[in-house]
């Protein structure tokens, strides 16, 4: 069954952007523009910085296991594709 990448533990994110740089490398470039993963800063207060992780589904065409493994904060999980789950049920 095909797997999809999910940011199941977003609150763990430390903003290192290793995932962003990994997917960009897989796309043959270095930089932030056009990345299927984007990290946004959520401003709360001076000492409570947290992040949100935005994932474009196109990331699932890449080697998402590498993306999952490069995260030092265990933000990501690899889940069964919902579409394929539905197909199996029907």
């Amino acid at each position: 069954m095909a797997k999809v990448l999910k940011a199941s533990f977003e609150k763990n994110c430390i903003g290192c952007e290793l995932c962003v740089l990994e997917v960009q490398r897989q796309l043959g470039k270095v930089g932030l523009e056009g990345s299927p993963i984007r990290i946004f800063r959520k401003e709360k207060s001076a000492d409570k910085l947290s992040f949100s992780v935005d994932i474009d589904p196109s990331v699932n065409e890449l080697d998402i296991e590498k993306v999952h493994n490069i995260c030092p904060a265990l933000v990501f999980t690899l889940e069964d594709s919902e579409e394929e789950k539905h197909e199996l049920v029907s």
Binding site: I14, G15, C16, L18, L21, L49, P72
Partner: peptide, 12 residues
């Protein structure tokens, strides 16, 4: 340490 990290560094 799990703190906000610098870009490109996994240490936080």
């Amino acid at each position: 340490s799990g703190k906000p990290s610098c870009s490109g560094c996994p240490m936080g």
